[in-house]
């Protein structure tokens, strides 16, 4: 079969990526801690990267589009984590809590 690389068909990667994305989505929606929600976002970003690189390998290994998108997602994920954690620590200093349900003021 032509759609098998290293003995692995494409949909195996898509399956893992979809599962990881949904697990991350659950983490973002169901957690009571801002840092744990951020971990869920990281899982989702990782699954997107796996999808992009799998499609790059199976459909267009000669082009740079998949690599470029994946690299930009890496950078955006790092930036998002840095800002998110700075916000969380800043809020923790003021409120002594990282529960997003307690972050209900515009100014404190």
């Amino acid at each position: 079969m032509q759609n098998v690389i290293n003995g692995i068909p494409l949909w195996w990667y898509l399956f893992v990526a979809a599962a990881l994305f949904c697990i991350g989505l659950y983490g973002v929606l169901a957690r009571k801690n801002a840092i744990a929600m951020l971990m869920g976002v990281e899982l989702m970003l990782n699954s997107v990267n796996l999808n992009l690189l799998a499609f790059w390998r199976y459909l267009a290994p000669g082009s740079q589009a998949g690599l470029a998108f994946a690299a930009f997602i890496f950078v955006v994920a790092a930036a998002e984590t840095a800002v998110g954690l700075a916000l969380i620590i800043s809020a923790y200093r003021s409120l002594r809590s990282v529960d997003p349900e307690k972050l209900d003021q515009l100014k404190f």
């Binding site: 290293n6 890496f74 994920a77 984590t81």
Partner: peptide
């Protein structure tokens, strides 16, 4: 997974950025 996808560059970048930086930040 990236190694299995014949993409050593992103495997190394994953270890350096995600494990070396983002996990430590978290």
């Amino acid at each position: 997974f990236y190694v299995l996808l014949d993409n050593g560059l992103f495997a190394v970048a994953q270890v350096m950025i995600y494990i070396g930086a983002i996990s430590i930040l978290i």
